[in-house]
Structures are given as structure tokens and as C-alpha cells.
Design a protein around this nucleic acid. Structure first.
Lengths: 117, 117
DNA sequence: CAACCATATTCCGATATGGTAATATGACGA
DNA sequence: TCGTCATATTACCATATCGGAATATGGTTG
């Protein structure tokens, strides 16, 4: 498996493409990203996430449901409430890659308007 | 910039979350992932992508438009046709992360049904 | 068991998105 | 300039998804 900068391609079947797309879809809502971000510093209950993310209870619950379906978060009853926590830190790696790209793009766009071309 | 395994959190503003979500949304369609995958081996024109991905011309064009908006692909006129090519290989890193996660999840799910618990 | 708290689910209206067919744009050669 | 090929855009329908309000579930405590 000598993959130093793997240029070899792992072709995905339509079925797999659908699954991958589904995971990206789960991450394609600002509210859900905000929830994940809030959970980054530790487990939180629904009512805490409501305040932190300024979302209604029903929406928090629904969004967490989506994230849970994709195994991005896990839940665990903790006394009277239910604490949610990050199930796969991979999401932060994903976000970091995306942010990096956007920074590069922004810098590139800014260069177009720079004093010296 | 000494980030070797940055565990420090880069909090994103609502505006930034929206932008990141937008990029994930661009990747949340199987057809678009198929297009990116097709382009992985080199630049292709629209009509070539139509065959490869089994999509109608209008859809290829629209999907490429979305990918182009997010600077995931670039275009370049090549004689009578227009060749599209990957603008940012980062997308493949993203896909690889997601695929890795799904393999882990699948293995985990499979374990639940394994003969020995 | 009853009441209460936390969370999940359902119903609804508004908006967004994908696929298709038809049409428009735009470059190039005769 | 006209026609043609390649691509982009538009209009339209069907479907999906979000947010909000109301309601249901489920665990805990008296």
C-alpha cells in the first residue's frame, strides 16, 4: 500500500456515490455544522444546544437525528437529559480541508483586485 | 502556523458556516461526484461526460455549472469543444476521508452480526 | 400511577433542487 | 454572413427539505 500521494483512483459504484453524497448532504446545512462545532468542545444535551446554536427544540432534534443517522454523533442518556457527542472527529478534518480551500480561493479572488496585477 | 494535528478549534462565523455548507452541498449529488470522478483521469468535454456518466446534456451542463461556481472544476476551450478539468484535487481527499469513515462504519455494523460477539 | 421534564415526531407551508424538453448562445468553417 | 456543432440557459413539473407549532413519547420522581 505504498501510497505517498495516491494518484491511483478508487472508482466508486453508483451505490457508493449515493452513500458518499448522502454524507455530504448531512454536512450541507449551516445549522448542522453549527451543532457539530458546538459539540467539538464536549458532549452537550439538546437544551444546551438550543441555546448555543439559537435553534428551536424541534429543529435541534431533527438535525441531530440526521447527524446520528450518518453516525456523526452519538447519544447517551445522562440522568434526565440526553448528551450528544461527536462520533467521528473526521468531520473536523473535512471542514478543515474545505476551509483551507476557501481561504485559497479567497486569496486568489482578492489578488484579482490587488493594486499590482 | 505550527499546526501539527491542530486540536485547537477554529470557530466559524455563521457566514462562514454557510459557505462551508454550500461547498458540501455542491458535493451532495451523486451525479456531480460521478462527474468529478470522471474528470479525475484527465480533462473531458461535456459530450464525453454525457456518455461516461450517462447523463443528459442539460444536466451535465448544470452540474458542471455548480461545480464551477465552487471552483471545483475549471473550463478551457479546446477547439470546437470545451474541456473541463479538476480545479482543486482537495475534493478527492474529501471523498477519501468519507469513504474511510463509511468503511469503518460498515465494518462496525457487520461486527454486530458476526458469529461471535 | 400521575405529573413533569427532556426529547422526538408529525403536520404544515414555503422554498429549493433535480430531471427533462425546448430554446438560446457562441465559436467556427464554408 | 449563414449554418452547424457544442454548450448554456430557460421553463416546467415532481420531489425533497427546512423551519415552526403542536403533539407524542419516554424516563424520572413524587
Amino acid at each position: 500500500m505504498g501510497n505517498t500521494k495516491t494518484r491511483t483512483i478508487k472508482r466508486l459504484s453508483p451505490r457508493q456515490l449515493e452513500a458518499v453524497a448522502g454524507l455530504f448532504a448531512a454536512l450541507s446545512e449551516p445549522s448542522r455544522l453549527a451543532l457539530l462545532q458546538a459539540l467539538q468542545s464536549g458532549p452537550l444535551a439538546v437544551h444546551q444546544l438550543m441555546e448555543t446554536c439559537r435553534l428551536k427544540q424541534a429543529n435541534v432534534s431533527k438535525h441531530l437525528g440526521v447527524l446520528h443517522q450518518h453516525r456523526l454523533v452519538e447519544r447517551k442518556r445522562k440522568g434526565p437529559s440526553i448528551k450528544y457527542h461527536i462520533a467521528d472527529p473526521m468531520v473536523f478534518a473535512l471542514c478543515e480541508l474545505v476551509c483551507g480551500k476557501m481561504e485559497r480561493d479567497a486569496k486568489c479572488a482578492a489578488a484579482l483586485f490587488a493594486p499590482e496585477i
